[in-house]
Design a protein around this nucleic acid. Structure first.
Length: 399
RNA sequence: GGAGAGGUAGCGAAGUGGUCAAACGCGGCAGACUGUAAAUCUGUUCCUUCGGGUUCCAUAGUUCAAAUCUAUGUCUCUCCA
């Protein structure tokens, strides 16, 4: 056995070790990243009022770079959001300017609160470009052949893409150019799906002013089934605790697959490589203790919401899954009928009466730890704990 | 504008007059086994007062009977020297 010497990895190597680097625009980038002092940006369109866990994965990379001595800029796409980044399978519905404005403000505040990055809005430098100038000053740098070859466009050719969305990459390319010229921004990072848009920006900057700018992308995080990571019961995991409570977030992480959890820990947590390797060892010895899942939940929830919220979330989880009645349990107050089916529907535990009936007859409902199989059951107490399946536990107060 | 192909449950996709509340797959939900994991197996998946009711883009028709036929509308996709 060769004794392992503890050497701190260089930043680029660490990012690679964590599995956070997908594509790199130039081999020069490694040295630049290790050296520090780069201004870089990461962009997102304001399609919602809050970021979700998917944003977190890429923004945490920005934070790693920032911690490594680089200067981050967050770009919120007030302009690009109005156009819509082409999705692989369908045209995006347009969102109104009012909604966009609201989303912009929400995101801006969140990024500033959580990460403390400088925020810019591409609407500021895009809004006054008129159409003729746009075609003359920028359109001339993009051949149709080049644009059609981009994955995002290519995949849409058989199902259709509007001129609006087709133009998206040009609009986004302007950002990189503008940020280079005005903020000396040399690097853009983004999700793997942004590679096409990012390279368009690199090309534009090179062709128009002859400068070389750089980029790398992060891989999309997938679950063990190859689906996008970050949904729980069909809902996104939001970073806003009013949309996703710390308890729900804790549950989300604690339920992650063993096969993926170390990967997630590397990609998402700010734990050091040594700490992660130690956790991996412990986890593999006793996977049923879910040491790695707990470590990930702790790291992220503490970072987002603070230690106190994490401890609270953990306490709630322990109590709830021990069947204890706690004030911190998700609680719903409803009124009206005390019939079990009505209660399930009124509390939204079941979406319809048929569904409620099915749940009951299949043995999926427990009230105060007693399995209920009679669909005509009447609840007598004013406060009960209703368990649906294994994981959905709510306190119901009947008025 | 013209020509063509389409619009079926959350998604994909069968069905081309009655046996259709609509095959099948995925996804979802629940049960068993477990560790609040994975895999596997089982049940279930429009609503319901369990009598029935309302569905297959919309409207109007044909028919004893329409997801299926007709007309019009509407939306989507493909192609147009």
């Amino acid at each position: 056995m060769v004794p392992q010497r503890v050497i701190k990895m260089k930043l680029f190597d660490e990012l690679k070790w964590r599995g956070l680097i997908q594509d790199v625009s130039s081999p020069k980038l490694e040295e630049m990243i290790n050296k520090g002092d780069l201004t870089f940006y990461i962009g997102t369109d304001p399609t919602a009022e809050s970021m979700h866990i998917g944003h977190y994965s890429s923004f945490s990379v920005a934070k790693r770079l920032a911690d490594g001595g680089h200067k981050p800029i967050l770009l919120v796409g007030g302009a690009t959001g109005l156009i819509g980044d082409p999705k692989p399978n369908s045209e995006r519905p347009m969102i109104t300017k009012e909604e966009l404005e609201k989303n912009y403000k929400g995101l801006r505040k969140q990024v500033e609160d959580i990460f403390g990055f400088e925020v810019v809005n591409n609407y500021d430098w895009s809004k006054d470009i008129n159409f003729i100038d746009y075609l003359r000053d920028y359109g001339k740098y993009f051949s149709l052949n080049y644009m059609l070859a981009k994955d995002t466009v290519k995949s849409r050719l058989d199902i259709g893409i509007t001129y609006t969305e087709f133009s998206y990459m040009i609009l986004q390319a302007l950002d990189f150019l503008w940020l280079y010229e005005n903020k000396n921004c040399l690097l853009q990072i983004g999700g793997q799906d942004q590679w096409g848009n990012i390279t368009a920006g690199i090309e534009l900057t090179r062709k128009k002013i002859g400068a070389e700018v750089f980029a790398f992308t992060m891989p999309l995080i997938l679950d063990a089934h190859g689906n996008k990571f970050g949904k729980s019961e069909g809902n996104a995991i939001w970073l806003d605790k009013n949309l996703t409570t710390p308890y729900e977030m804790y549950q989300f992480f604690i339920n992650q697959d063993d096969k993926m959890i170390i990967k997630y820990l590397k990609m998402l947590s700010f734990l050091t490589p040594d700490e992660i390797m130690e956790i991996e060892k412990l986890h593999n010895q006793k996977p049923e203790l879910r040491i790695a899942q707990k470590a990930l939940a702790e790291d992220i929830i503490t970072f987002l919401h603070g230690k106190e919220e994490f401890i609270k979330a953990q306490e709630i989880s322990i109590k709830i899954f021990n069947g204890e009645n706690t004030d911190m349990m998700p609680t719903l107050v409803i009124s009206g009928s005390k019939n079990i089916i009505d209660v399930l529907v009124n509390s939204n535990i079941a979406p319809s009466k048929s569904e409620a009936r099915r749940l009951i007859t299949q043995g999926g409902i427990e009230i105060d730890k007693v399995k209920i199989i009679d669909p005509n059951y009447e609840i007598v107490k004013n406060e009960v704990i209703i368990k649906k399946g294994k994981k959905s536990i709510n306190k119901i107060i009947l008025k």
